[in-house]
């Protein structure tokens, strides 16, 4: 792996990226990653990315939140069994409101944990193989090749209208 070379082809148009990704499938080179300034469903489809699992964290947070909020309010109430305004000690309607707010709070916290966990943030290592133009107006396809194939890969990108950047190879897995 240490001899592997990585080049990034920088494109301005999403359609160029999709065409290049299709062409790379039948080439000897492998796609390492694709960067873009904005999300694009067509590119995501071309990469065959599976559906994100962030929602499971959000759902788990929501379920935990509702029961935490409701049961917490009920627990505090049964500590003294003090009847207020003629309502039951464990009053369903007001405690449901507490449960609802906790549902939202914990869902959002679960969502953030999901983003950090499955989204791999923070990702300081990702900055090693990165070109700053990708946050501006370019989409970047990083492809790996063996050293002898570097010129051919460079030509491949240029033929499709890309600017080409040679990347420093990081030690982290692709």
């Amino acid at each position: 792996m240490s001899a592997e070379k990585r080049l990034m082809g920088l494109f301005k148009e999403p359609d160029q990226v999709i065409d290049t990704l299709e062409a790379l499938k039948s080439s000897p080179w492998s796609v390492v990653r694709v960067h873009g300034p904005i999300p694009n469903h067509k590119i995501a489809d071309a990469l065959n990315l599976p559906k994100s699992k962030v929602g499971y964290f959000t759902l788990a947070g929501g379920i935990i939140g509702f029961f935490t909020g409701f049961l917490f309010a009920a627990y505090t109430s049964v500590q003294w069994d003090l009847i207020v305004s003629g309502k039951p000690i464990v009053a369903l309607v007001p405690f449901f409101i507490v449960g609802f707010e906790f549902t939202i709070l914990f869902s959002v916290i679960g969502n953030v944990i999901g983003l950090i966990n499955v989204g791999g943030l923070p990702d300081w290592g990702g900055l090693v193989e990165y070109d700053p133009r990708c946050s501006g107006e370019h989409y970047g396809i990083t492809a790996a090749c063996d050293p002898v194939g570097e010129t051919a890969l460079r030509q491949f990108f240029q033929d499709r209208g890309a600017q080409v950047a040679t990347l420093e190879t990081s030690s982290q897995p692709a």
């Binding site: 999300p39 995501a44 990469l47 994100s52 959000t58 499955v118 989204g119 990708c134 946050s135």
Partner: peptide, 22 residues
């Protein structure tokens, strides 16, 4: 360390949608 990888966008857009929905 955001780099706009499509792997990141995939989770980000989903997470953002959930944020909005919540």
């Amino acid at each position: 360390g955001w780099t706009g990888r499509f792997e990141q966008w995939r989770h980000y857009t989903r997470g953002y949608l959930f944020f909005a929905a919540l």
